[in-house]
Design a protein around this nucleic acid. Structure first.
Length: 416
RNA sequence: GUGGGUGUCGUCAAGCGGUUAAGACCCUGGGUUGUGGCUCCAGUAUACGAGAGUUCGAAUCUCUCCACCCACCCCA
């Protein structure tokens, strides 16, 4: 039991961790090019923040949160990234800084769900948020960054779905229209859909239940009920995306699962992921900051699943460069050489080289073998012979040549 | 919460009622006492997911449980 990892979590071993490091550096690079700064918020927040922010009718809040009580406080491990950033934005009064505020983060998220391909209980997200802009240019930039990043990795067949899910003004009318449309079939709806009928009828359209799907056919679509402002905004967004040369598909069925979204909603879909096809999802949340207790601040952002991204890269055979092995392995024979080798390694390391030595007390053959396994570029062999001559044997591991060389000349030899 | 699939050494993988439960890879050591990646030899290992049951006898049959994977749901 204690040597079993908790379900839904994964160890990232050295054989994988370099991929994460690579991905993270690509993320930082991209974020920097777009002027996003990293923000780091705690792993957990007050439970109330998520209940209020994400919406207490959502699955995430109702049954997926890792909540714990301590010192009479209810705290919850982040199930997503936005709420924490919003909290921090308000608490630290970041709205007093030059707007827009542009932030990115790479975080673990926690959701108590059944495991599946591309779905874990602890997973990782790359997220960005832009605060303070009502303009669709912000939405276009958020989507543009995602597009840029994803295509830059060599993933070119993603589908971008966009939709507008309106604002509080137009949603009320739509909601009524939708309820009127579905009401005749109410009794035949699935249980979950019945539950959503009053609270959040839009989510019924997202149901994959065959019957629900049938009744949903021909249902009124949010996009047809947009108020003038939302309609104009959606047109702006499409124009901006066209200008950026980003292909998209209007998908009236996108209904993001977190309640805070308004207007823009989008998803990047991949065919390499099985059932969990969304690699990146996001949208606009103009009223979240207010809802959580800050000043009215429009905002837009996305969350991108890193595990899913890695899955796609693997499916596509996109190679992630392996880190280089060490520069030098120092193999020694005997006591005196061993001591000398210790100091020699220290000196080389001080100069910035990555140096491996034998810490197993192995024979020369075994040391060479280990040097080979460690992808050492060079192996330095030091025995009593070398010590007497004041030299060292430098072996090039790639072409199996070696020569004796003065100790103080070693650096110019291995430099390059 | 509901379905379906799978469980034999660290990994891959034979075995299908009676075997010391193969083999390969990995790992360790060695092939005349100072040299890797190939080859040869040897060595290590609490491997039959767990527990009951059937049987003279079970990794092989039955049941229960557990774990993992996949799908529904939901989402990154």
């Amino acid at each position: 039991m204690i040597i079993n990892i908790p379900k839904g979590t994964k160890d990232i071993l050295p054989s994988e961790s370099y991929k994460w490091q690579w991905l993270e550096s690509r993320i930082r690079e991209t974020a920097a090019r777009y002027g996003f700064k990293e923000i780091r918020t705690p792993m957990f927040e007050h439970t109330e923040l998520f209940a209020r922010g994400i919406g207490d009718t959502t699955d995430v809040v109702q049954k997926e949160m890792y909540t714990f009580e301590i010192a009479e406080r209810s705290l919850t491990l982040k199930p997503e990234g936005t709420a924490g950033v919003v909290r921090s934005y308000i608490e630290n009064k970041l709205y007093a800084e030059p707007q827009p505020g542009k932030y990115f983060y790479i975080i673990p998220c926690f959701r108590y769900e059944k495991m599946q391909k591309g779905r874990q209980r602890q997973f990782h997200q790359f997220g960005i948020e832009i605060f303070g802009s009502e303009n669709m240019m912000a939405d276009a930039e958020v989507i543009g960054l995602a597009w840029d990043f994803l295509t830059g990795l060599g993933i070119t067949d993603l589908k971008l779905h966009i939709n507008s899910i309106g604002c509080p003004n137009c949603r009320g009318e739509y909601r009524k229209a939708l309820q009127d449309f579905l009401r005749p079939h109410y009794d035949e709806l699935s249980e979950t859909s019945k539950g959503r009928f009053e609270k959040n009828p839009m989510r019924i359209l997202d149901s994959k239940d065959p019957d629900d799907k049938k009744f949903s056919e021909g249902a009124p679509r949010m996009i047809d009920y947009l108020c003038d402002e939302c309609k104009a905004a959606f047109e702006d967004l499409k124009n901006d995306l066209d200008a950026l040369g980003i292909p998209y598909e209007v998908d009236p069925n996108i209904v993001r699962g977190l309640d805070y979204y308004t207007k823009t909603a989008f998803e990047f879909i991949s065919e390499d992921l099985g059932a969990q096809s969304t690699v990146c999802g996001g949208g606009r949340y103009d009223h979240l900051v207010e809802e959580v207790g800050g000043p009215y601040t429009p905002a837009v952002g996305f969350g991108m699943g890193l595990e899913r991204l890695l899955l796609i890269l693997e499916a596509k055979g996109i190679e992630i460069p392996k880190p280089a092995g060490c520069d030098v392995f120092i193999a020694t024979l005997g006591e005196r050489p061993k001591t000398f080798g210790l100091k020699f390694a220290k000196d080389l390391r001080a100069k910035g080289y990555s140096v491996l030595t034998d810490v197993m007390g192995r024979g020369l053959k075994a040391q060479l073998k280990y040097a080979d396994r460690s992808d050492a570029r060079y192996t330095v062999v030091i025995g009593d012979d070398e010590l007497e001559k004041g030299v060292v044997t430098l072996r090039d591991m790639d072409n199996s040549t070696q020569k004796e060389i003065a100790i103080d000349k070693i650096e110019e030899e291995i430099h390059r």
